[in-house]
Amino acid sequence: MSEVDIQRIVEKVLVELRNRMEEKQQLEEQHEREVESENEQLFSYDVMDWVTNVPTPKFPKGIEELRKATPARIGVWRTGTRPLTKTILKLQLDHAAAVDAVSGEVLDSLLKEFNLFTVETCYENKEVYLKRPDKGRILTEEAVKTIKERCIKNPQVQIVVSDGLSASAIEANLRDIYPSLLDSLKVNGLTQGTPFFVKGGRVACMDHIGEILQPEVLVLLIGERPGLVSANSMSAYMCYRPRKGIVESERTVISNIHSGGTSPIEAGAHIGTILRKMIEQKASGVHLEL
């Protein structure tokens, strides 16, 4: 091996080393950039979260205490009489999420978990659903046929689930409320018929279902119109002998069922007791004494 050769090899090794170093550096830099960008994402998420504060509160510890007491947007401070920028942007972000929740759909796999088959109202599509609530109160002819074929007639308790105005309310709460509802039926000595899911339902679809199946009481778990704090809020509407011509005040309701409101497990447990009282008093809504 000549000196020249050696030098070439050394040079080659050096180049190689330099390349590797550079590569390593590039990798490190890239990694750093990724971490940075991750941080940036985290950071930007934090920015979008609720971070405005009263700068010099009279009781600094009190602010947290008050905020913990409610999901309402309090302690947000102001510039003049207007809210701070981050508070406004957070509000707009949450509004955007709620608007998007209206257009969602419940996954079939979730319904299968609870053996709920699906029938539809005459809602046609989401836009008609919003403008024509009357169509969401009537089941299609096919739905009526399916229900007659598959459901027990004249059950003591009929359970119905519907997406209503928030499919994500069903996704978020069904796994908690449903088992606890079944337990509370047992505890209260009640028996149920054949439960099912109604797509495109409005509250008063209970009346049509009541006509078809003639249950003693019916409970409808339905997605509420989404709010900003809770796009996942569910209501449980209950009625004694639901039928056409029932007025709103003859229904009993537990609203605001979600993790930040009435907990779905508690709500489920409560429903059985209410249904039992309905059967005992042969009444629901304003005529029911709880």
Partner: peptide, 23 residues
């Protein structure tokens, strides 16, 4: 609070809005 009713699930006007209208 910030026009967002966390119970009734709708938006109205805020404390800030009323203060601003007054000014």
């Amino acid at each position: 609070a910030m026009a967002d009713d966390c119970m009734l699930n709708y938006q109205s006007t805020s404390f800030h809005d009323i203060a601003t209208l007054r000014e």
